[in-house]
Design a protein around this nucleic acid. Structure first.
Lengths: 239, 239
DNA sequence: AAGTGGTCTAGACCACTCA
DNA sequence: GAGTGGTCTAGACCACTTG
């Protein structure tokens, strides 16, 4: 049954929300099949057409995959192809460059001005910070400084050896990812980054300033990448 | 009536194609209202639901805008907001930088290797080439070298004073635009570009190598931009 | 053969816009 | 009040996958 028939929110959106919540909370696990359309329609007390509209929506939001004759399956956000969809570095042949990631220790602290702006936080809010280095074929090509709101990822500093890729963290914490925006400009490598990347300080690098948001539009990750491309490029797709 | 009832192509896609063709060909002009759902359903001999699905599609393809209580209107691809949607340079405040464009003479010639690769042309195919300079607040910030397949834009060299913005050319020639991909890297300004941009030769610039496609996926414009950003950035949006 | 999602129908009622 | 698109219903049949 719809959670709130009195609400102005259309039924198909209410159903979408209910389905999305089950996926976020892990009630339906990644890879599992969810009930078929008519069962869902019965459960929510709406018509099959309304259910279908909700399913179309969560499919377009990459929460499920539907296959004719088989069923509807919860996507694993940790899978290749979903987890790396915000990594836009490509090789000369156009193939995605997904570096090996080496992450430092996570630290916690008060959000600074830039973090507050990018993550839409208040002065008292805390963030977790991690430095990551991405390598391809043994060559480090990007140094990333990552900040995440502490409230969304509780006890992150205490976890050891967890993968800090945002898609994986988000899935583990019941957060659904939506869009991301990346500001691209030419910058100079910081002394520490230059050292890691094996280039002269103040070499021109690509500055990749990216904010990743939840499906409802809340920022959950801000990272500045200092990227030294040799034969690779950044690929932006526009629709 | 559906053009081909025997076709395997779903009815709503056949209706979509018919609507898209009328918009491309200019049968329905930019800004004009198109018939309402039930009239279209009658005309094509399908149910209102099928018509609606086709209308939803062309709306998502930016061909029309639907407004409850008013009607469905053909989008003007030459309008601000549609014509500049592939220009991703932003100012410090995040506002789009849409430069004044100064275009040189269009020339015609055989497609070179890179043009054939980017525009998927054969050895004998011809292209039109134009150099454009974009300025903002009187300062030139990007030099663009543009190539377009000659077959798609016949007699382009003979036209004087036409706007060479791809969205406008496309609308004039009955072509519907779809996606674009942009390869971004750090390059060195060519001597001529450096002169125009007022910077030292071999200064690091952002190289913006962009291919724009039609709705059916055919490349229609390739351009390399040499972009000198001062306080601005390139904004990539990922979904 | 049974079960799934994909397509399609033929309506109803509602929210919104505008004359 | 008339006309529009937005939502919703309650089915039918088809294409595809799997046991």
């Amino acid at each position: 049954m719809p959670q709130d028939v009195l609400s102005n929110r259309p039924l198909y959106l209410q159903v979408r929300d209910a389905l999305a919540e089950r996926i976020a909370k892990g009630t339906w696990r990644p890879g599992a099949a969810i009930p078929n359309e008519s069962d869902l329609a019965r459960e929510f007390g709406v018509s099959p057409g309304t259910t279908r509209k909700a399913l179309d929506l969560i499919e377009s939001e990459r929460l499920v995959t539907r296959r004719q004759g088989r069923g509807t399956f919860v996507n694993d956000q940790a899978s290749e192809g979903l987890a790396i969809r915000f990594s836009n570095i490509r090789g000369a042949d156009g193939e995605r460059i997904v570096g090996q990631v080496e992450a430092g220790e996570a630290t916690e602290g008060k959000a600074n001005a830039l973090e507050r702006e990018r993550l839409r936080l208040q002065a008292a809010d805390h963030v977790y910070r991690i430095r990551r280095v991405q390598s391809h074929d043994g060559r480090p090509f990007m140094v990333e400084d990552v900040s995440m709101p502490a409230t969304i990822f509780p006890r992150l500093v205490e976890m050891n050896g967890v993968n800090h890729r945002i898609a994986i963290l988000a899935q583990r914490h019941g957060v659904l990812l939506g869009k991301a925006q990346e500001r691209i400009s030419i910058g100079q490598a910081s002394p520490e980054a230059a050292e890691v990347l094996g280039i002269a300080p103040a070499t021109a690098i690509l500055s990749l300033d990216r904010v990743t948001q939840t499906l409802d539009g809340y920022p959950v990750e801000w990272r500045i990448g200092q990227c030294h491309l040799v034969g690779q490029h950044y690929l932006a797709e526009m629709t």
